[in-house]
Design a protein around this nucleic acid. Structure first.
Lengths: 339, 339
DNA sequence: TTGAAAGCGCTAACAA
DNA sequence: TTGTTAGCGCTTTCAA
């Protein structure tokens, strides 16, 4: 409908001053007589005045609103968002930062092409000053769509595609190193890995770091099978590894789902985890905790990364930062029962 | 900041017509010469024009945006939202309806007093036309705050408090009947129930329906212990029931968490579920699936309820409906392994 | 069918 | 320190 609440004009009349003065009080601009300030405050209370954002942002060109976009694909994306704690951690981190600064955070879900269009339309209309984007899709078109609109945006992980954009990322190579170091520390020497699709930079980096660490320990031959981040591909990869290297005693999978698949296959083949084989995953997703045994995994400091995204965006919005920036975070090893 | 994209004026100049004409084309108002319409369309494409929502809503007093507020309390609320599928189902249902109508849905999280204030401020500023509210907190102050603002809102379940507000709800008595009927159908006769806090209408109704069905089967004496919707209270209630009625063969708990507590206690005391005792929960929350054995439970048609909320709100916004309305939905019995 | 013009409620020069 | 005034970009009468 169209609630037509009291306007500045009404408050001004009530307080016996001009619109401008009321505006100054509302926006706490200095140079307002304390007495008048009080009078205006009372008038605001009496009238129940609330500034109209449309009018304000029409002139300031700002909404004090930031969109947090969760993007992905598929029928089940919404269900996934609301069952994988990962998103909760992102939201937690971002909201914490934004709220403290009086910025209104709005969550937008972009789970289909149509939804993405609507999200972009929302932003192009000027309904938010900028966007924080978390995509879990390989070649999410959203990044490019957003780049076209020239709306300030900060991404979680580097989007594929040309123009460099501001983003936070994990030191994936270091994650691989942590996993490798941990397996070595557990006394494992016949170690293999299930890597992710090698066209993904993150997957490449994890593998690189992992190999690096093993190499430094004198293990230069590391059996590698590529999976595609699903439980099934993890199990299949484990099958191949086990057939070619029956005495395997350690496995690093580039994500938790594949690690889980590997665990399943290993127990089916009579290998106990972690008795015979130590398994390390990556992500600390809900799969890590649900897995039996609970997965040792490499965790991203998601909350801090999300807060950093919000901070980066704020800097872009304020103009304190103009060039695209990249913030890289250190992963943490989380030891559970699988290693 | 403030992207200053092309305006109506720019498009008008480009197309050689007046602002008004462009506006008509943009809003597909009739009475525009097809030729001119085409010319304007092209000019829009060429300039990359996108209407400014602030300017538009300043005059129309509408934003074509609806807020979906998830409200609750506590440190862990955000984590809970992003791990309990219940919220995903709500979002799914509401977004499905809104998106199809070109309305921008924005998710707002109100997990603390401060967050609630900001949410209300957002709404009072006129940033959304109305709100859909899902609260999982007993006496959520948000309902009252919203009522004060006179912003159109539709709630999931009836909020406590005076002024009647539009809401969708579950036929809780029918849920109780379903649970009772199922236990009877399983051949159970020594049936007890763990009800919820009797100051909650939903809990009262569930108990009423349950008793009604057992009564019709000639069972007029039903042992009842009240719990407070937590796992612990469910276990404690089961303890009392079992000590007073050792031969118990069926239990209906007014929510899944209490059912889970009951299951745990029963197995500890050597009663197999469902061998010795059939257990039925309520909600189909994530606890129901996580429980061992998986819980038979009474499920709410959440997606449909959420869509109905959106539809109700739409009617209020359009003025097709002016009085607060209540829509009641039928629960569904979901048989799993605990009965 | 189209255009001219008057605001929607607010901020921000600029004057006073 | 305060008030006056000119728009921000759009929709919407009202005339033409």
């Amino acid at each position: 409908m169209g609630r037509r609440g009291p306007t500045l004009e009404d408050v001004a009349r009530e307080a016996g001053v001009s619109r401008a003065t009321v505006s100054r009080v509302v926006n706490s601009v200095r140079n307002v007589d304390p007495g008048i300030q009080e009078a205006v405050r009372r008038a605001i209370d009496r009238t129940g005045y609330a500034p109209n954002l449309a009018a304000r942002s029409l002139v300031t060109r700002r909404t004090e609103t930031v969109a947090l976009i969760l993007s992905g694909a598929g029928e089940t994306f919404t269900a996934r968002v609301f069952s994988d704690p990962f998103f909760g951690r992102v939201v937690e981190g971002a909201l914490g930062f934004l709220r403290a600064r009086g910025v209104h955070p709005v969550l937008l879900l972009a789970e289909s092409g149509a939804a993405r269009e609507q999200v972009v339309a929302y932003l192009r209309q000027g309904s938010a000053d900028g966007a924080l984007v978390v995509s879990v899709q390989a070649d999410d078109p959203l990044a490019a769509m957003l780049a076209d609109t020239a709306i300030p945006a900060v991404h979680f992980a580097r989007p594929s595609g040309e123009p460099p954009v501001s983003h936070v990322d994990l030191d994936n190579a270091e994650g691989g190193r942590l996993a490798g170091g941990h397996l070595l520390a557990r006394g494992r020497r016949r170690i293999a890995t299930i890597c992710g699709p090698q066209d993904l930079p993150a997957a490449r980096e994890r593998l690189r770091g992992f190999r690096e660490t093993l190499g430094q320990a004198g293990i230069s031959e590391v059996p590698v099978v590529e999976g595609c981040f699903t439980v099934e591909s993890g199990a299949a990869a484990a099958a191949r590894l086990l057939s070619e290297h029956p005495h395997l005693d350690g496995v690093f999978a580039a994500n938790d789902l594949m690690a889980r698949g590997a665990c399943q296959y290993l127990s089916e083949r009579g290998r106990s985890v972690p008795g015979d084989v130590s398994v390390v995953g990556f992500d600390d997703s809900s799969a890590a905790v649900a897995c039996r045994p609970a997965l040792t995994t490499v965790r991203q400091p998601v909350e801090r990364m999300a807060a950093a995204m919000a901070e980066l965006l704020t800097e872009h919005l304020q103009g304190t930062r103009t060039e695209p920036a990249t913030l890289v975070f250190a992963p943490e090893l989380l030891v559970r029962d699988s290693s």
